[in-house]
Amino acid sequence: MNILPQRIKQLVNYGPRDYRLVSDAPLPTPKARELLIKISACGVCASDVHCHGGAPMFWGSATAPSWVKPPVVPGHEFFGEVVGYGEGALEHFSVKMGDRVIAEQIVPCEQCRFCKNGQYWMCEKHDIYGFQNEDANGGMCEYMLFKPTSRVHKIPDSLTRNECALIEPFACSIHAVNRGDIQFNDVVVLSGAGPLGLGMVQAIRLKTPKLLIVLDTIPERLRLAKGFGADLVMNPLEEDVVAKVKALTDGYGCDVYIEATGNPASVPQGLQMIRKMGRFVEFSVFSKETTVDWSIIGDRKELDIRGAHLGPHCYETVINFFERKLFSAEGVVTHTYSLDEWEAAFENAHSAESVKVLLVP
């Protein structure tokens, strides 16, 4: 029988650029239908870095309230082991003590129009683990709670730690690719070969389009994308990617453009290289507002613009793909740090040296 500690380590967000490691936080006590999870690893997402840096989309502005509600434990790319539970929790989630589990990023309210219609990932209240204090403390800690409305999935023993840590980002990848409605004869351009982009490369490859082109400015990420199945890779800093894509498509442009860089320059780039009536999928979390010439979308090209948010109904697919070796984590997780080293982890996650950075308690 495991003896649980009474005091634990947590990284706590108190405000922009005010994150502190708390070494003597009380062990969370699970209430009815809540699970206590011993965290095995938690990824550092670009949104974590933007939030730490004070991006207005997280902290609000003169016209919008703050979405983040500190103090809160950050981290939404976590997985771990069931080590405790409140009344009815094991039956509620169909798990048992010792199971490896992951919860989806969102904690649905179950009361709003979207939740009642089954569109839980667009919940109006929209609590995301790692951003809203007691309602959704995240996984950059030793132990956390899975709330009663969580979407919880069991993880088989066959998956490695790195594969488990990529379930959340790769679920987002699959959802974005599904939004693109890729057909066999499509020329697809994916802009961005970060952790999510590399998941998208693998998902797009399974859709077997006519041609898959991946864009990024970091050579190592382009190398990984090529290894995961991209037909062509290009660096926008080194060549005219718009002209090259048009040359490859008889001047028309690509059929599908998926934007996954977080760089505002990638958006007008995509609008220039996509064909008339093409499908533009926007996935990125930007640190600042991005503007484009909307006449391109409407009057000039009549584009189909599709957003992609979170990874609904995709977690079990990612787990299955890892089990069947249709997805690979090889080379995606590049660095691991302890909770004590969180500052170095955040700095590295913001650099070109890393792909996916993990915090391992």
Score class of each variant (00 low, 15 high):
residue 212 L to R: 03
residue 178 N to D: 15
residue 166 L to I: 07
residue 216 D to S: 06
residue 253 G to F: 04
residue 69 K to G: 07
residue 298 G to M: 12
residue 266 S to K: 10
residue 77 E to D: 04
residue 212 L to K: 02
residue 204 I to S: 03
residue 127 D to Q: 07
residue 290 T to S: 14
residue 262 G to L: 09
residue 327 F to A: 01
residue 103 A to K: 02
residue 149 T to R: 04
residue 48 D to W: 01
residue 46 A to L: 10
residue 112 C to V: 02
residue 264 P to A: 12
residue 84 G to K: 08
residue 72 V to S: 02
residue 176 A to W: 05
residue 68 V to I: 14
residue 279 R to Q: 15
residue 111 Q to K: 13
residue 224 L to P: 08
residue 239 E to H: 10
residue 333 V to F: 02
residue 299 D to K: 15
residue 211 L to E: 01
residue 160 T to I: 06
residue 46 A to Y: 07
residue 59 W to T: 10
residue 166 L to Q: 02
residue 307 G to Q: 02
residue 265 A to H: 13
residue 70 P to C: 06
residue 159 L to R: 07
residue 313 H to L: 14
residue 345 A to D: 03
residue 85 Y to A: 12
residue 340 D to P: 09
residue 346 F to K: 09
residue 272 Q to C: 14
residue 270 G to H: 00
residue 158 S to I: 14
residue 62 A to D: 15
residue 339 L to F: 11
residue 108 P to C: 01
residue 97 M to R: 15
residue 152 V to L: 03
residue 66 S to Y: 04
residue 210 K to V: 01
residue 288 K to S: 15
residue 289 E to F: 11
residue 194 G to L: 07
residue 339 L to T: 12
residue 14 Y to W: 13
residue 355 V to S: 04
residue 61 S to V: 13
residue 319 I to M: 03
residue 109 C to W: 04
residue 123 C to M: 06
residue 337 Y to L: 05
residue 137 N to D: 14
residue 252 Y to S: 15
residue 73 V to C: 05
residue 55 A to L: 15
residue 243 A to I: 12
residue 215 L to C: 12
residue 76 H to S: 02
residue 127 D to G: 02
residue 194 G to V: 08
residue 213 I to S: 02
residue 180 G to L: 03
residue 322 F to V: 05
residue 17 R to L: 13
residue 307 G to E: 01
residue 303 L to R: 07
residue 268 P to V: 09
residue 137 N to P: 12
residue 60 G to F: 12
residue 32 A to N: 13
residue 4 L to N: 00
residue 355 V to A: 04
residue 39 I to R: 04
residue 58 F to N: 06
residue 161 R to Y: 08
residue 205 R to A: 13
